[in-house]
């Protein structure tokens, strides 16, 4: 077996492959008995090692100093996760108008008026990742997306497995938008599913979904201006959403508000 093939088999064993690549490996293992024996050994050793590592630290008295440090760290991180004071009263005073230069909240109409809550000064990292991916992938009209057409159904199942919670591509035909493709993004914030839509004028929009961290509060829809683009972002208990589109096309805020109501 070549070195590359060994890497592929490892990635298959650890659930790191997409459905098509996984099917290729399964086909290879089905026709190559030697490769199958090697794979079974790898899987057995991985299981044994996981079990042995679990047993290594399964016993022994609680170390009081470690327990105290653990409590202190929990307290420090909990303070860090607690919602900061309001954007208007603190962040503006502290940072002046520098923040406005980098990102400006725009008014978001009746929905925003009813649901607005103070936000921390920083745009969540998942939004920055989603906007970056939109610029790289969604607006690229030449390079094919990772999954198209019939492959999309299988892709969402794979995305769900990778992200750890169910993700689906919502129907945006009310806005004359067609789902044209999807891809899984590997980001510093973890895996994200990007669904790419196209409207009747050929403008591209993207909806990016990431698993919502358990330790982060839920935030309502907010809309943010970027140069030439705008992004609406919000959370549910399971997922972080970012809908991105070019300014001047279908209103990102309208689509995002509709999605908030539906999901």
């Amino acid at each position: 077996m070549t070195h590359t093939a060994t890497i592929d088999v490892n990635a298959y064993l650890d659930g790191e492959l997409g459905p098509e690549e996984a099917a290729e490996i399964e086909a290879r293992l089905a026709r190559d008995s030697e490769a199958r024996i090697r794979f079974e050994a790898l899987a057995r050793h991985k299981d044994h090692l996981g079990e042995a590592l679990t047993e290594l630290a399964a016993s022994g008295p609680v170390n009081l100093k470690t327990a105290r440090l653990e409590k202190r760290l929990a307290a420090a991180l909990h303070r860090r996760m607690s919602p900061r004071r309001s954007f208007a009263s603190v962040a503006w005073i502290r940072h002046g108008f520098q923040i406005a230069a980098s990102c400006a909240l725009v008014a978001f109409g009746w929905w925003g008026h009813a649901n607005w809550s103070p936000r921390s000064s920083a745009v969540p990292a998942y939004v920055s990742e989603a906007v970056g991916a939109h610029r790289v992938f969604a607006e690229d009209m030449v390079q094919p997306v990772e999954f198209t057409g019939a492959a999309l159904a299988g892709a969402t199942e794979w995305f769900s497995n990778k992200i750890g919670t169910e993700v689906t591509a919502p129907d945006l035909s009310d806005f004359d938008m067609t789902l044209v493709g999807a891809r899984l993004l590997g980001t510093r914030e973890g895996p994200m599913a990007q669904f790419i839509y196209e409207d009747a004028l050929g403008e591209r929009y993207s909806l990016t979904l990431a698993r919502h961290p358990d330790d982060t509060p839920i935030a309502p829809l907010q809309v943010i201006d970027y140069p030439e683009r705008e992004a609406g972002y919000w959370n549910t208990p399971n997922l972080d959403f970012t809908f991105v589109g070019r300014k001047g096309g279908t209103s990102v805020e309208d689509v995002a508000a509709t999605l908030v109501e539906r999901i």
Partner: peptide, 15 residues
């Protein structure tokens, strides 16, 4: 854990 406590302010919630 001691280093993490000292660096807690640099940890990004959500990461």
């Amino acid at each position: 854990l001691t280093k993490a406590i000292a660096a807690a302010e640099s940890w990004q919630p959500g990461s």
